[in-house]
């Protein structure tokens, strides 16, 4: 197999694009695709400061690496979730990546932030899936850090497979409000929110892993222990089987949705009317979703102590 760009021996085969590349040409192809996504969707300019949520995994490190190479103004943010060995390993990878390239990285750890609650306790006391609390915690701390740091934009490493799996889930259950919000650029609905963007939304998981590998990025290969049995993985598996027989399906699913269907679902976004009485972030009720969750955990924790 030969590189479509320079005819050297190919090391990366992309069935979805019906093409193959050598190492150098693949790196170029990947970076150019990300740059095109940023420009096509007007995600941010080279002047705007971008906060990149870095988990230590392949996607967020590939994203950060690409943005730095393309000359964007970035800073990394690592949020430690307190999930045992997995969190320890991912923090080490994120720190090592930043240190080796002399890039600015902020470290926040849930155990050390205001409420001192990490994911395992949150899941234990709410008796719900850890991922539910995890999503709320991440959103709150990312929003807060972007606001406090004066960033214009928050970028995350969600890739094409994430977007396609989310879209499948939203379509299977006809989640109209979620379909309205499924977009690679979310414009702020409150002055205290920043723009949220997903520059890898057209880039498959295979491509970001390949990019990270070929760029010598040492990322965390282990998975979060809570991801086992996650519904999202069932959707990803289905989509990958479809992709195997019909290459390009995932990209068509997501990009055709954005082009033809998203405008039909997107009404006026509902904006939080006020600010949270406890933390001051935008809120639909007296307390924001994060503070309501923290209050629930604290209530159940004190009940548990009272019964023991």
């Amino acid at each position: 197999m030969k590189c479509k760009r320079c005819a050297a021996k190919a090391t990366v085969q992309l069935r979805s694009h019906n093409t193959a590349f050598c190492k150098e040409c693949f790196v170029f192809f990947f970076q150019r695709n990300v740059e095109r996504s940023i420009e096509r969707e007007r995600m941010f300019t080279r002047e705007e400061p971008v906060l990149v949520a870095v988990s230590g995994g392949k996607d967020s490190l590939a994203l950060w690496d690409t943005l730095v190479t393309l000359g964007y103004r970035t800073e990394g943010l690592y949020l430690g979730l307190g999930i045992g060995a997995y969190s320890a390993a991912s923090q080490r990878k994120a720190e090592a990546y930043a240190a080796a390239r002399d890039l600015p990285l902020r470290i926040m750890r849930l155990e050390e932030e205001g409420d001192g609650l990490a994911i395992p306790e949150a899941a234990f006391f709410t008796r719900r899936q850890p991922c539910a609390a995890c999503g709320t915690f991440k959103r709150h701390h990312f929003d807060r850090a972007a606001l406090d740091g004066g960033f214009a934009v928050l970028a995350t490493g969600h890739n094409l497979d994430d977007e396609a799996a989310r879209l499948l889930g939203n379509v299977l259950h006809w989640q109209l409000p979620y379909l309205a919000k499924q977009h690679p650029v979310l414009t702020p609905t409150h002055p205290k929110f920043v723009r949220k963007v997903r520059p890898l939304y057209r880039t498959s998981e295979y491509e970001s892993a390949t990019y990270a590998f070929l760029r010598g990025i040492d990322y965390v290969v282990e998975e979060c222990p809570n991801s086992h049995g996650a519904t999202q993985l069932v959707y990803k598996d289905l989509l990958n089987r479809l992709e195997e027989t019909m290459p390009g399906s995932k990209l068509a699913f997501v990009s055709d949705f954005l082009r033809h269907a998203h405008p039909l679902f997107a009404g006026a976004p509902d904006s939080p009317a006020g600010e949270c009485a406890r933390c001051g972030m935008p809120a639909f009720a007296e307390l924001c979703g994060y503070c309501r969750l923290v209050a629930e955990i604290e209530r159940r924790r004190s009940q548990a102590v009272a019964h023991s």
Binding site: G57, K58, D59, Q129, C131, A132, C134, G135, H158, D161, D162, E205, Y206, S208, A209, T210, F213, V221, E223, C224, N226, S227, A230, T231, Q232, L233, K236, D237, N240
Partner: peptide
């Protein structure tokens, strides 16, 4: 053979 799929509700 290294899996490239990561999961969880991200």
């Amino acid at each position: 053979l290294r899996a490239v799929i990561s999961g969880g509700a991200r």
